[in-house]
Structure formats: C-alpha cells, structure tokens
C-alpha cells in the first residue's frame, strides 16, 4: 500500500493474520495508518475491527489461544519483536475503551497513576495532571474538586477522564474502542470535538459502530467484513463514492 499521507505513516501493518484457536479471525491485513490523523475502523459485529485494533498495542497477547502472524510497525519499530517491552508499548499506544473505566480513586490520582508508575517525580505530577485534564477538556469542570472520587463523575466526564489519563503518559497513538457507545449525544459531541483537537498531537485510531461518527470525525476510514479489510481510503471518498460494493451496501444500510 502506498504511503502518500501528508504527515507520513505512523503504523504500518503488513500481511497480518490472527487466529483464535482454529478460528482464522483476521485475513492478511495490510494497511498504513497516517500520523496526526483520525482513522476509523467500521464494519458489522464480528468483522474483526476491534480484534485488529487490539493488535496495535498487543492487547491480544492476553487472550489464550490467540496466534498472530505478520508485521506491525509503529514509527518503524516492529512491535511484535521479542525485545519489545509490552508495558512501554502500551504507554506509547494508549487505549480508551467502550465503557469508561476510571480507577476507584480521586480524579487527581486517576491521572497521576500512570506518570507515577513510570517514575515521574512528585513535584512534576500536579502540572502533568492539570495539563492532561486540560487537553482532555475536563479541567474546567473538575479543577475545584480534584479530590472527589472519579466514580462520582457523569459517564461522559468519566470517559474524558480516561482520555486524560491516557494523555498523561504522553502516548504517540491513542486507540479508541467505541468510546461513545455508552454516552448520550451531548457527551458524544464533546468526545468527538476532543478527538478532533487531539489529532494535532497524536495519531488516533477509532473503532465505531456508529458510521455517522466515523463520517463526522475521521480523515480515513477502513471497512472490515468477516475478517477481511475490504476498503481503506479517505473518509470523504468512502462516504461519497466507495469503490467496493460491500462498502456501499454497509454504509447505506443495505446489508443482509
């Protein structure tokens, strides 16, 4: 696949196959994901988009019976090579999940947790926490109650907290796995605006069931079906004039 992105390629995947036991779940996926852009993965349930997303920070390593072949390079480094420190990889490639999952501790400590375990000095922590909450578009809502439990925040605020927590360890890439599926339209709008702001500094990959969300916020879209990458292109092209009939059938709701 050619690399003609304005900001270059962040993630280069070549010939990736994945098996869950005997089930061949991803078939020969090759894709270049551009830097400082939002790339959306869409497709029906079970198409492999979340599985593929989890390949990008080796979250599938945790699943028994999961076997992966192929190359995944992030900024030129093979992340499946034996000498890769997986904890460090997940710091570089952060992840935000479907359901907000704040730690059962204060807002401050949620953000401070990552920098602390990565050995950041105490006097720097407060600045990092404030910066991350500002970048996560939450500071204005919580700056006067940093000591309260993160679990007392609304769902949308909790999700922005989780994004801020990811930002606090200064990742290169942020993976979002359906980050708005448990949120109302207002909170969804805030997260979408936040994602659009974050792409200036990070490479963003988002799995979403909401096609309109992919259309609204992504620069590139990849359509997956039954473990195959069917089509990948600029979001404007995918939603105005997709090359593949299967893509058109899916995005126009004519599937099955």
């Amino acid at each position: 696949m050619s690399d003609d992105f304005a900001n270059g390629t962040e993630i280069a995947v070549k010939g990736l196959n994945l098996w869950y036991g005997k089930n061949h779940a991803l078939h020969d996926i090759s894709i270049n994901i551009p830097k400082n852009s939002v790339t959306a993965f869409i497709g029906p349930s079970g198409c492999g988009k979340s599985t593929f997303l989890r390949c990008l920070n080796r979250m599938n390593d945790l699943i028994p019976g999961c076997r992966i072949e192929g190359d995944v390079n992030i900024n030129g480094e093979d992340i499946y090579s034996k000498d890769v420190d997986v904890v460090d990889l997940r710091k570089r490639v952060g992840m935000v999940f479907q359901k907000p999952n704040p730690f059962p501790m204060s807002i401050h400590d949620n953000i401070a947790y990552g920098p602390r375990i990565h050995g950041i000095k105490k006097k720097e922590i407060d600045g990092i926490v404030e910066g991350a909450l500002k970048a996560g578009a939450l500071w204005g809502e919580v700056s006067d109650r940093m000591g309260i439990s993160a679990l007392d925040l609304s769902g949308g605020q909790q999700q922005r907290l989780c994004i801020a927590r990811t930002l606090a360890v200064k990742p290169e890439v942020i993976l979002f796995d359906e980050p708005c599926s448990s949120l109302d339209p207002i909170s969804t709008g805030k997260i979408e605006d936040l994602i659009l702001k974050l792409k200036k500094d990070y490479t963003i990959v988002i799995v979403t069931h909401n096609m309109q969300q992919a259309a609204r916020i992504s620069d590139y879209t990849a359509f997956f079906l039954l473990g195959d990458l069917i089509e990948f292109g600029k979001t404007g092209q995918i939603f105005e004039n997709p090359r593949e009939k299967a893509t058109e059938d899916y995005i126009t709701g004519r599937f099955g």
């Binding site: 309109q212 259309a215 609204r216 979001t235 404007g236 939603f239 105005e240």
Partner: peptide, 9 residues
Amino acid sequence: ISQLIARQS
C-alpha cells in the same frame, strides 16, 4: 454539499 450530506447528516 456532497461532503456535508455524506458525512454530517
């Protein structure tokens, strides 16, 4: 306009 319709509903 095509882009607004296709992407922003």
